[in-house]
Design a protein around this nucleic acid. Structure first.
Length: 196
DNA sequence: AACGAGCCCAACCGCCCACGT
DNA sequence: GACGTGGGCGGTTGGGCTCGT
């Protein structure tokens, strides 16, 4: 036979932790430690919580060495670099960021950093295709921006970024009225034309 | 001021592996 | 060795908050 069941799920409290529950858990662990057994801990301190829930609450919120503020630019960069290298191994990434939890980093990644990295990658790939924004000079394109504008929801003025040498990502995709959102490379291949 | 959409994040879920029985 | 649990982990959810209209 194995060990006793973890907890009686019908009789454990779920949902947000109250300040009283936090205080009980924090005070007990600070004076006695976890005892190496999370499942046995809640009944000891009179909490109607699952041991796993106590563990999560302590590790992600109550631990005294946690940072609760926003992430710095250095932390952003480190997370992006590690994610590209090892993927979503949040516990490993968290180990490189003192005071941050895997849950924190995972949330931060899913809500903000992911978008940031996508923008950065799109910008890099577009700069690879068009290293010099002026390469996109509408006067030299076999299909003009005005032509594209005629078939999209954008006006030709929306392509002014290229003409002014602005960041190419700002206008690296557009909405085709017939087919939806496209980037230029795909649109060129689909229509058999070159914008260069 | 009211409402809806989108965002944020704490907490839960479910899986996997190591290990106790 | 087989069985079953605890701990750890990544993925997902949902309620509260913020912002734009």
């Amino acid at each position: 036979m194995g060990r006793a069941p973890c907890c009686d799920k019908a009789n454990v409290k779920r949902g947000p932790w109250s300040p009283e529950e936090d205080a009980k858990l924090k005070s007990y662990i600070e004076s006695h430690g976890t005892g190496g057994n999370w499942i046995a801990l809640p009944p000891k301190i009179g909490l109607k919580r699952c041991g796993k829930s106590c563990r999560l609450r302590w590790l992600n919120y109550l631990r005294p060495d946690l940072k609760h503020g926003g992430f710095t630019e250095e932390e952003d960069n480190l997370i992006c670099t590690l994610y590209i290298t090892i993927g979503s191994r949040w516990s490993i990434i968290a180990a490189q960021l003192p005071g941050r939890t895997d849950n924190d980093i995972k949330n931060y990644w899913n809500t903000r950093l992911k978008k940031k990295l996508i923008v950065r990658q799109r910008r890099q790939s577009h700069q690879h295709l068009y290293p010099n924004p002026l390469q996109m000079d509408p006067s030299s394109a076999s299909t003009s921006f005005a032509d594209i504008a005629a078939t999209t929801r954008l006006g030709s003025g929306d392509f002014r970024g290229f003409e002014q040498g602005m960041d190419v990502f700002d206008v690296s995709c557009f909405v085709d009225q017939a087919h939806g959102l496209y980037n230029y490379g795909f649109w060129e291949r689909m229509n058999g034309v070159s914008l260069n």
